[in-house]
Design a protein around this nucleic acid. Structure first.
Ligand SMILES: NC(=O)c1ccc[n+]([C@@H]2O[C@H](COP(=O)([O-])OP(=O)(O)OC[C@H]3O[C@@H](n4cnc5c(N)ncnc54)[C@H](O)[C@@H]3O)[C@@H](O)[C@H]2O)c1
Ligand SMILES: NC(=O)c1ccc[n+]([C@@H]2O[C@H](COP(=O)([O-])OP(=O)(O)OC[C@H]3O[C@@H](n4cnc5c(N)ncnc54)[C@H](O)[C@@H]3O)[C@@H](O)[C@H]2O)c1
Lengths: 286, 286
DNA sequence: ATGTCTTTGTGAACGCGTGCACAAAGATAC
DNA sequence: GTATCTTTGTGCACGCGTTCACAAAGACAT
């Protein structure tokens, strides 16, 4: 019970365009706009692919979902493709956006030029702090949460950005949805529960860092083979249910473990010398 | 042809742990730490899964890669699992991190408490602007780019965050890598080229918004069936190579087009009334 | 000790995404 | 017009990730 609703659209491929492709279209668009500014008339899939950092076959397949706008032997017309992708992404209209939670991050977002330059218009900044109300941030006066519903319905906003503390996020989310928002970009580190038909995308800083840390640890571990690895480097923090814990050689087969090998740039003593402060960060809040 | 190096590790599954699983571990960890704070001793896969917003089978399979730390009939010991995941992610040590580019976003990141609370320590803030040098941000004095190499090698930093303008990102990246950084979190909207062995993860705000806009457009389009859709709503921005353009009924079969249907909450007139300013945002910079 | 009941761990099937490799399309040259 | 050369569009195969569904493991009651 209480599974909330965490469904991807289920029938993910919205109109025949795979989700993975949709996620890459902005990438292509960015590269294309750079070419456009340099007045480059056409690009080959190879060139554009390398500019966007993807495989050229993938790019061609992606474009084929849009309807094959290329010319064999020549490539793609830059301007035309910019327009087609923009249209496909819905960027030929502008999207009013509200940002809720104008703290450190919210203010940075409000100041971010990359919004406006891509068809998104910051329609309003909303915060619960009365001290902020009326204060201009990035030239836009902050409005109080009380007016959230009014702002959204009067401006026909359908995209909301949540930059409040995690504790307030779900509540804010509920209000946004009730007010008519159907797309949410969430920066708060929480899982949001939304009704069907509402899209949520999340950006979580610390998750990204943790993923990097994982790989970083692996790199470091591989350089010094042998010794501690595989084994449990510390006793159990609390006594688990019973004698269950001792039994643990179930998995742990230590697969191939190759990682493309080859280094490249000189890397040597890179291990952080296990920070000066000896306490574990916040791993065991107990 | 300057393909740069955009390889995923190739042998993606680092030690037998699939990349997709690694990406979810922080999610589980977050949920577990919340339970831990509430002194919940054990959780079932079902409960934890719904807290983390994933399928319970997926969660169990994910945990099985770590070595099956559960007790059948009971569930998982919260504290023990917190520790195991932390260890797997490399969070039992603390990771010094440098942030380069202390503008709007960089400052927000520096002020973000979520770093420290998860084992990441901001070792230094670096910016090219001499006016910023020495000024404290979040209690840490900003240092000049000249000292980048020194800072990194002296502190044994292996993770770097880039929050500079896009134009400076590749250059900053190169210096970071040369100085010994092997993991980069990039906020600048550019594709970074790095040598093998260096991990790059990117966070791109406007890409997320564009993806939301795509789905938003689809929702709106489905409510008013018929009329403009499928057809080219505008002439070609520039004349493509030749008579090529006219021929375009190659694809476009208008697939199933169902999208799980069912709405749920009342959604009615949500279309942004096509912004007051009549100009297309920045779609056609030409 | 035996039985029942809960929940894990995982085999197997399936679907999506990726990349290879190539036929076909069209440009360009002659 | 014909030939050659470039580059697209895509069929196909493969691998990863997801999900189902269930046997086995163990807790708990009696
Ligand atoms: N700062 C970062 O770099 C960063 C990075 C990643 C994630 N985050 C997350 O983003 C969120 C915001 O971070 P921050 O550093 O800007 O925090 P912050 O404390 O500086 O700002 C939060 C703002 O939200 C407002 N707020 C609180 N409750 C509200 C409510 N119910 N309705 C409307 N506004 C409300 C507060 O008044 C405050 O202005 C947090 O969840 C944080 O975890 C921040
Ligand atoms: N602000 C946001 O919410 C946001 C959102 C998404 C992406 N971004 C991206 O993040 C980056 C930073 O955004 P911002 O709003 O903070 O910009 P900003 O202009 O406020 O800050 C950029 C900072 O980088 C410094 N800098 C410039 N060149 C440098 C160099 N070579 N070495 C070191 N420092 C250098 C500048 O002095 C400045 O302090 C941009 O690429 C932007 O596109 C920002």
């Amino acid at each position: 019970m209480a599974t909330g609703r965490h469904h991807r659209p289920a029938t993910s491929r919205s109109r025949g365009i795979p989700e993975a492709t949709v996620a890459r279209l902005p990438l292509y668009l960015r590269a294309l706009m750079a070419l456009s500014e340099r007045s480059v008339p056409t690009v080959s899939s190879e060139e554009l692919a390398s500019a966007a950092g993807v495989n050229s076959a993938k790019l061609r397949k992606d474009f084929s979902y849009l309807g094959s706008y290329g010319t064999r032997g020549v490539g793609y017309d830059v301007e035309y493709l910019v327009y087609q992708i923009s249209r496909e992404l819905g960027l030929t209209q502008d999207w009013p956006v509200v940002i809720v939670g104008i703290g450190n991050l919210g203010a940075a977002l409000a100041n971010y030029g990359g919004f406006a330059s891509r068809g998104f218009r910051v329609a309003a900044l909303i915060d619960a702090d009365p001290a902020l109300t009326g204060k201009p941030v990035a030239g836009i006066p902050v409005q109080h949460t009380d007016e959230l519903e009014t702002i959204i319905s009067e401006n026909g906003v359908s995209i909301g950005v949540i930059a409040t503390p995690a504790g307030a996020a779900q509540q804010v989310c509920d209000r946004l949805v009730a007010a008519g928002i159907t797309s949410i970009l969430n920066f708060a580190p929480t899982v949001l529960s939304v009704p069907e038909g509402v899209d949520v995308r999340k950006v979580d800083l610390s998750i990204e860092l943790q993923i990097l840390a994982f790989h970083e640890q692996r790199k470091a571990g591989e350089e010094l083979p042998g010794a501690e690895e595989e084994v449990d480097p510390a006793p159990h923090p609390v006594s688990p249910p019973a004698a269950t814990v001792t039994k643990r050689e179930t998995k742990r087969d230590g697969r191939d473990s190759n990682r493309d090998s080859g280094r490249g740039t000189g890397r040597d003593a890179k291990r952080p010398d296990s920070g000066p402060d000896g306490d574990l960060p916040a791993v065991m809040p107990a």
